[in-house]
């Protein structure tokens, strides 16, 4: 039971990062390997706002998510668009965007190391225990889970029940055809990339309330998010959420029952199973 709750909280955070990534990769076609740094940057900003100006992390999201949206819009506009335009095929765009976002990843990391150093950070927020079915959980974790659920739900409603959300899904399916039906593909791509960054940053704000973070941990989160995106099927909101919860629970189970040092092994075990048996994702249709 303990594993289920802790795992679900972790999975909820993973789900948001993965949703951010799936928007960026599924719609804008950019495999953003700097997404984890985006998350860590939000952790630090939340911490900084909280410790310097006593801004509650919940309020912090309202500042950080729009800021991340703007930052990622700029990144897409000035760093990624040129790559999209020069790419002769999807494969080349993939290689270029992977390399460029590696560059971003190191630059973000470098800047954060200079600003905050390499140490581990943590702070106290809503760290009061709440009893559920006989076990105690930090209130901050439960608030995180609730916030993750609200954000994921809002994203789903936006994508499936609004006009612009439908346009974005159309771009995800086929950018050329979407362009033919008068959807502004470059704009939709930029929007999806920026939105993905904002969702990930929101996840970072929440994560920082209960997780010890440091400047160089982004890459592990990126990797887990990527694995979740693949497990869930690229661009699939339901799949990403389910895969994230699965991964969160599997990791917590391994950490509790076997060894906390083997969480990545659990991630990889799931990843390998997916690669070998369902490379198109849990809900993905089998390839034609």
């Amino acid at each position: 039971m303990d594993i289920l709750v802790t795992g679900t909280v972790l999975g909820g955070t993973y789900a948001l990062i993965a949703l951010g990534l799936t928007l960026q990769y599924g719609v804008a076609r950019i495999m953003n390997l700097a997404n984890g740094e985006n998350l860590v940057l939000a952790c630090f900003t939340t911490f900084w706002l909280f410790s310097t100006y006593a801004v509650s992390p919940l309020l912090g999201i309202a500042i950080i998510a729009p800021a991340a949206f703007a930052l990622n819009w700029l990144i897409y506009r000035f760093a990624m668009r040129p790559l999209v335009e020069r790419a002769k095929n999807r494969g080349q765009l993939e290689v270029d965007s992977i390399l460029a976002t590696f560059g971003l990843m190191f630059i973000f990391q470098g800047v954060m190391l200079l600003a905050f150093g390499g140490g581990y950070y943590t702070y106290n927020f809503l760290n009061t225990p709440v009893e559920i079915l006989g076990a105690n959980y930090g209130l901050n974790r439960l608030v995180t889970l609730a916030a993750a659920a609200i954000i994921a739900l809002a994203l789903w409603l936006f994508l499936y029940f609004t006009r612009y959300g439908t346009a974005i899904r159309a771009v995800a399916v086929d950018p050329v055809a979407a362009g033919l039906v008068a959807i502004d593909v470059p704009r939709a791509s930029a929007f999806a990339f920026a939105l993905g960054g904002a969702v990930t940053a929101a996840a970072g704000s929440m994560l920082s309330t209960f997780y010890t973070f440091n400047a160089s941990m982004g890459v592990i989160f990126t990797m887990k998010a990527l694995i979740i995106v693949i497990m869930g099927g690229v661009g699939d909101v339901r799949g990403a959420v389910l895969a994230a919860l699965l991964l969160g629970i599997a990791e917590t189970a391994v950490a509790t029952l076997v060894d906390p040092g083997l969480t990545l092994a659990a991630t990889y075990a799931l990843f390998i199973i997916v690669l070998l048996f369902r490379p198109q994702g849990i809900f993905g249709r089998s390839p034609a």
Partner: peptide, 17 residues
Amino acid sequence: PNHTSLMIGIAFMAVVY
């Protein structure tokens, strides 16, 4: 010593662009 990440990042950007 604190600028190595930044340097690698810039090198990646240089290779791409």
